[in-house]
Nucleic acid binder design. Structure first.
Lengths: 225, 225
DNA sequence: GAGAATTCTGAGAGTTCTCTGAGAAACCCC
DNA sequence: GGGGTTTCTCAGAGAACTCTCAGAATTCTC
């Protein structure tokens, strides 16, 4: 297999260089872009396996670049670089498509780790309109619909994201810290995970055997029975 | 699948031990070498999946070891240990072969992470994500699940960690001091190991012949019958 | 065999973790 | 602005977990 090709988009040459060097060092082939327009042109070629995309760009911002790429049918994975004070709700939206984000200031190692994770995951394309299935559970990301045994279940956005994350990691125990980071977007200690697990169970368990299992002292796992 | 085999080359026994202990703990099988010549002999056998190589060695230096290995057609991945003040251009040279480097003083975690990353890149499964198997015992680290003969066994976190450690060191006697250090994280004298061994036996033995054996005066061993 | 050392295991106390109901604040849509 | 929804915090109840202790059982030594 040839080296994975990465497009790094940031208006600051320093950051582009830093990220570029790090990624190259770890075996990626890297191309840089300084603005959203340029990024769109390059990414439209479909040559890239991954895009590292700053949210704050002078011309077309990162979200818009993402939106246009998706509209053009490109489902290349994207890792967003967000400033620390980016509103939590925008950050949250990112995690749904299977994409990832890294907050500035970020450690290069973290970014490389994410890049690898995204690409490893990408054997099957991280398509937006994927329908996740675990046992008799179906979650349609595009339609924001969840069914269990064919019965529609109404979920709030947070419940939906939490369930999507658990389904993506089926049969793996995910820690509360992981959930806080990827579903909520902040790392503080909080009981909110327990509360939402409770909400999900209340809605899902009446329709069949329990799917969400507690691993005491560790986290939670969605298991196929 | 067996554990990934790592050759650790450093002229300081302390560092060799430190790195060796850490890697073993994380599921690698480790061999040490004190000099470049010895390292070349060992690595030439092709038995290793990874070489951790100090650059500064008394006889043949790390770069030379690397060069000769490549010349001999061995493309085993190499992680270099470099002093902090190693010239930047030499460091850069390392990246060419797809290898990695860690600067001294290094954190053990960082090294383990790199080792995993390198092996993953090479298509070799990482040590941690493996499902450990001993006889009819299966332990899935990602899913925190244990089965014996296909039957699910519920374990508490401490029981789980203890069993994982024993399985990683299958057919070896591990002392109570080792267990206290690696499973509990403190070194005080305590009967807690005996208690937890007892718990494990109570849960595992009804499903088959005894696996955990007492080595009186020494410790315990998990043996394949 | 007898005595000593070591290990096993049942019982229990104290701590920690999880679940869930209630409620306040924020948000959204009309 | 008002009603409904959503998000998050808090706190108590209950369950699970960890570790200690002590007596029983086993093994070793003489």
């Amino acid at each position: 297999m040839s080296e994975p090709r990465v497009l790094v988009v940031d208006d600051e040459p320093n950051i582009r260089d830093l990220v570029g060097i790090a990624l190259r060092f770890h075996g990626f082939s890297v191309t840089g872009a300084g603005g959203g327009g340029e990024a769109l042109d390059l990414a439209a070629t479909g040559e890239f396996d991954l895009v590292v995309l700053d949210v704050m760009l002078p011309d077309v911002d990162g979200f818009e670049v993402c939106r246009r790429l998706r509209a053009a049918g490109r489902d290349v994975p994207i890792i967003f670089l967000t400033a620390k004070d980016t509103p939590a709700d925008t950050v949250r939206g990112l995690t749904l498509g299977g994409d990832d984000y890294v907050t500035k200031p970020f450690s290069v190692d973290a970014l490389v780790a994410r890049a690898r994770a995204v690409l490893r995951r990408g054997g099957r394309a991280t398509a937006r309109d994927e329908v996740l299935r675990v046992a008799d559970l179906e979650l349609d990301e595009a339609g924001w619909e969840v069914r269990r045994g064919g019965v529609r279940v109404e979920l709030s956005p947070t419940e939906f994201r939490l369930l999507a994350f658990l389904m993506r990691h089926r049969n793996q125990v995910v820690t509360k810290a992981q959930l806080l980071e990827h579903v909520w977007g902040f790392g503080t200690q909080s009981q909110v995970v327990e509360t939402y697990i409770s909400y999900l169970r209340r809605k899902l368990d009446p329709l069949g055997p329990p799917l969400i299992h507690t691993q005491r002292g560790v986290g939670y796992a969605l298991r196929t029975p």
